[in-house]
């Protein structure tokens, strides 16, 4: 039985919800599934992973807990574990962390790697992934001793496939490359959901008029458990930070629901949210490009519509 590994990603010590879809992408009755997680305290994940078909949970430990804050060290540890357990296929999230870790691993192994996969076919070793600003979907065949797949968050609906999960500890003894040193790590806003993995996103564009008005979106987001995004115009005007930008030169997102407020729907904005499950457009201009390519459109003033949405959602609770 071939062994396939899934790299576990956590947020504030818990498995990220979008990770279960990655396991589903790797699920296959023919294969043995291993989950790789950093830190001794991850042994408690076994119960959460059992319903999704993980046979072995490998907790990767090191003499110093700090050593895994070094990205190069993380990559080396994964490679050692892959070697030790004879893992030749690796799955993970195409998150910000995945965009650093997966290519580090692939480069060292000289292995093929495709990021942002929408679907993976393990039998013929092909994947589907968007290219050219999400205007095309490419079928890519990977060839190599190893193969590595980054899965687009929220793309694959998690499916259960219960098995017994056994926990194994893998102690990584390697030393760090002293040519790359982590000076400091400043964690992002605690509790904040990263855009790339959010299930619901409400975004604002030029129609927001200024930075303070984004508070209207924040309030609505809080009620829905959503993250707040923005168009490049809102970022370039200094209203919100670049980490909130959705699009070609911002973050690519794939939420279940995307609400675009005062965003016209440029090609470059669509390049970042085209695979969203459901798109809602709120715009004063009924002819805006976003209106033409959305699921639900309301032609009207966002400054009236969003507060009403927040109010009604609150009332529903």
């Amino acid at each position: 039985m071939e062994k396939i590994a899934i790299l576990i990603e956590t947020r504030q010590g818990e498995i990220k919800p979008s990770l279960y879809g990655v396991i589903t992408a790797a699920q296959d009755a023919e294969h043995e599934l291993l989950a790789l997680a950093f830190g001794a305290d991850t042994a408690r994940f076994a119960d959460q992973l059992k319903p999704y078909g993980i046979h072995h949970l490998v907790t990767i430990t090191a003499p110093s807990a700090r050593s895994f804050s070094n990205p190069d060290n993380r990559a080396r540890a994964i490679i050692r574990a892959m070697d030790h357990f004879d893992i030749r296929t690796l799955f993970a999230l195409t998150s910000l962390a995945g965009k650093d870790l997966l290519p580090r691993i692939a480069a060292r192994l000289d292995a093929p790697l495709v990021m942002d996969c929408l679907a993976v076919n393990l039998v013929d070793s092909t994947v589907e992934k968007p290219q050219f600003s999400e205007k095309t979907i490419a079928t890519i065949r990977v060839t190599g001793h190893h193969r590595i797949f980054g899965i687009r968050p929220n793309m694959i609906e998690p499916k259960t496939m219960p098995v017994e999960t056994e926990t194994v500890v893998f102690n990584y003894q390697g030393t760090a490359d002293d040519r790359l040193e982590v000076v400091e790590t400043r964690q992002g806003k605690s509790g904040a959901i990263d855009l790339s993995e959010a299930e619901i996103i409400i975004s604002g564009g030029r129609g927001m008029k200024n930075g303070e008005n984004f508070q209207i979106l924040q309030e609505c987001a809080q009620v829905m458990g959503a993250a707040v995004g923005a168009s490049r115009v809102a970022v370039d005007n200094g209203w919100v930070p670049h980490s909130m930008q959705v699009g070609q030169t911002g973050t690519t997102v794939c939420p279940k629901l995307y609400i675009a407020c005062g965003i016209s729907g440029s090609i470059q904005h669509f390049a970042g949210m085209k695979t969203a499950g459901t798109i809602v457009c709120i715009n004063t201009d009924p002819d805006a490009a976003m209106m033409q390519q959305c699921d639900y459109g309301i032609a009207g003033d966002l400054f009236k519509i969003i507060p009403a949405l927040t109010r009604q959602l609150k009332a529903h609770r």
Binding site: T136, K274, C294, D295
Partner: peptide, 24 residues
């Protein structure tokens, strides 16, 4: 020449089916 490869074997246009419902 590398042993590993990533080859595009097919391309298709990405069309997302949207409901396109206006709510009045």
């Amino acid at each position: 020449p590398p042993d590993s490869r990533m080859e595009i074997i097919a391309l298709k246009s990405a069309v997302q089916k949207r409901r396109k419902q206006m709510i009045a």
